[in-house]
Design a protein around this nucleic acid. Sequence first.
DNA 1: CGGGAGGTTGACTATGTTCAAATGGGGTGG
DNA 2: CCACCCCATTTGAACATAGTCAACCTCCCG
Lengths: 246, 246
Amino acid sequence: MMAAPVLTHVKCADCPIRHRAVCARCNADELEELDTIKYYRSYEAGQPIVWSGDSMDFVGSVVSGVATLTQTMEDGRTQMVGLLLPSDFVGRPGRSGAAYNVVATNNVMMCCFRKKPFEEMMARTPHIAHRLLEMTLDELDAAREWMLVLGRKTAREKIASLLSIIARRDASLEKGPLDRLEFELPLTREAMADYLGLTLETVSRQISALKKSGVIELEGKRHIIVPDMSRLMDEAGDDSDGGFLG
Amino acid sequence: MMAAPVLTHVKCADCPIRHRAVCARCNADELEELDTIKYYRSYEAGQPIVWSGDSMDFVGSVVSGVATLTQTMEDGRTQMVGLLLPSDFVGRPGRSGAAYNVVATNNVMMCCFRKKPFEEMMARTPHIAHRLLEMTLDELDAAREWMLVLGRKTAREKIASLLSIIARRDASLEKGPLDRLEFELPLTREAMADYLGLTLETVSRQISALKKSGVIELEGKRHIIVPDMSRLMDEAGDDSDGGFLG
DNA sequence: CGGGAGGTTGACTATGTTCAAATGGGGTGG
DNA sequence: CCACCCCATTTGAACATAGTCAACCTCCCG
């Protein structure tokens, strides 16, 4: 059950997230230094990576897989507050305790930096600090977009919003025609519910309803086919353009 | 009606938010330089400061007053995504267009930095970049806490959460006994509704309900008295500690 | 073949919304 | 000074959306 957590050491220069993660702007010398303070570590599907309140001795990046960031109330109500994809950053430099639960939904590979040396390096390496600022601003924008979803959208719009986000992310990788997208849902119905502030029954019902309306098609439980992306985005209630800003 | 927008020039060293805003860590030389690229500007209650989608030629800090950050759907549904208090930062370095509406709810004084020179200065001044990163991480934490409120709390808990946040903020200024706090609400019922993802009628009803339960007392519509802060925090459903982290 | 996790569906209920009307305080003009 | 009006707010009654509780399905795995 408990996987052996120790791992291959990949040179930063060969890392698959090299150009998108917190190290994206580092030069060769800086990468060398990062190499000396990092280690890879894997987590199995379902395993906790960090527990809220625990002290963290590392910060790091998701290299592969998907993890969730969740907050929980005493009575068990749970809200997902972030979805961590490859290149996303985990942990807060300058803070000792974790504020959220981080759980692997897939098998996840993390690139972990020992906290102390990373903080020291960040303090004298603008390339890292600036990239982290940029990434944090992006996350803040995403969180605020999500606040609109949580606060003001109907159950059907919430599902459509989540599906568009996942679809658009995948579309940016495998290019293709604007219509007819397919993708695999990386989340259970319960995780979707926690993301959207719904119950899992409501998630299930709305997915069925979108299927009945022909907005999506299902193949199994997790494979989604979107015959017409603009139709899905209409259902999400978003501005038509997709909201890209300079 | 339209106020003359131009203003007094206050030296950074004398600025009321000097030690908390984006300039908090700057030394005397850096403040001198900031002085040359900034101007003060005032906005009357209700006036827009920035309109979503407009291009911005400045970034800046709230010096006094309260402003809201909101997002709006085509059909008019609106969600507040941030509440800007003195020392909070407005605008995103590196991006030309505004992503949200910023509206003054009070009379607001802004300290505006011309965008281009500010960005250039930030690129070579770690004191500014690091402080902005720290502030952005704090905002991200606040946004995520708010996601839990929006997604998982009942109307009564939402109101109690908002009141505790405002009460705690004011309490950190005027120290006093832990129980028996009073404060002025800086928001209309409608703004509270937009913050909480509710209708203004529900906000009104739940405030009446909290009053009937003795959790709060009202003096007029906007002046709130909290006889027992721990009682209010129980109603908010938060963990008892208040969630401070290193 | 049995067990379990994830998912679907149905019937009923509860919470918050909608629509509508009433209240109340502050300011303006006569 | 007072009548009036405007706006924020409160309150009520009917309604709708999503939640709850429960049964059942279906796939995978041992």
